[in-house]
């Protein structure tokens, strides 16, 4: 028993080292811009770069748009499938998993082929059109995470009975979705939103191939031309992702508690 516990601790320590060492190495390297002393110079360079601010702001705006469109698409769909089409759930699972199987480069080439300037819907012909195309690409990439998060949230409540209760009180579909379903899956939606945010902030392939000024291509550009700044940027990107994860934990505390269901 005691020997088992020692081995458990050893494996846990090895696991932590495996994940932490590269991060510690990156962090340490990012602090070495000034010769012979640790400093935050690399961070000041990155944060002071106008391209950092522009690309980061662009990606944040894209992430917010992606979250709004994703929520508007996923919440009613997942709700309707649970309520009226439970037999379609395996099909929906399959569809929403496809973005994990199909590489983004395939998706974006498909977009370029379908929506180029000589197509019936020439979205790539303007900056706004390309932004919209990129945003829908991000919605697709985030779909597995958003759908699962919302579906898990819906599983925790009795969707059918709550819907019928609201209907019997005079509520239509918009009221049911906005005042009954959405508030009760808000935490799940927020989890999906933070995951979407983290994905969009770090995404490279789609933004680069659609030639948009996003944060991912900026990170790649910086990495190809500078030494210490890319490490600082990597640490900043990690901090943003972890910040999102921490926010998921914080908001989950404010979830409406479901009363015990009678059996």
């Amino acid at each position: 028993m005691k020997a088992n516990r020692i081995w458990s601790w050893i494996f846990l320590a090895l696991g932590i080292l495996y994940f932490a060492l590269p991060l510690i190495g990156t962090l340490e390297f990012s602090l070495k811009l000034r010769r012979g002393a640790y400093s935050l110079d690399a961070y000041w360079v990155v944060l002071g770069d106008p391209r950092f601010q522009q690309t980061f702001l662009y990606s944040v705006m894209m992430a917010l748009a992606t979250i709004v469109v994703g929520v508007l698409l996923v919440v009613p769909t997942a709700y309707w499938v649970r309520l009226k089409l439970p037999g379609w759930r395996p099909f929906m699972e399959f569809i929403t998993l496809l973005p994990l199987v199909i590489p983004p480069i395939v998706i974006v080439f498909g977009y370029i082929r379908l929506y180029n300037t000589s197509s019936w819907l020439p979205l790539t012909g303007s900056a706004m059109g390309t932004n919209i195309l990129l945003m829908f690409g991000y919605v697709v990439l985030a779909l597995p995470y958003m759908y699962r998060a919302v579906d898990t949230g819906l599983r925790a409540i009795d969707v059918a009975t709550l819907t019928e209760a609201a209907q019997s009180l005079g509520a239509g579909w918009v009221t049911i979705l906005s005042r009954v379903i959405l508030p009760n899956v808000a935490v799940a939606v927020l989890s999906g939103a933070f995951l979407t945010f983290a994905i969009v902030i770090g995404e490279f392939v789609m933004a680069a191939l659609l030639s948009r000024p996003a944060f991912g291509p900026y990170m790649q550009l910086l990495g190809a031309n500078r030494a210490y700044e890319p490490a600082a940027l990597a640490v900043i990107a990690f901090a943003i992702t972890w910040g999102c994860m921490a926010l998921i934990q914080v908001v989950s505390r404010f979830a409406p508690k479901t009363p015990e269901q009678p059996h």
Binding site: A165, S168, N184, P256, K257
Partner: peptide, 14 residues
């Protein structure tokens, strides 16, 4: 305009 009470209570948790 018909009121209904369900076996599972169906109160809105939020």
């Amino acid at each position: 305009n018909i009121g209904m009470v369900f076996q599972a209570y169906a109160l809105f948790p939020n």
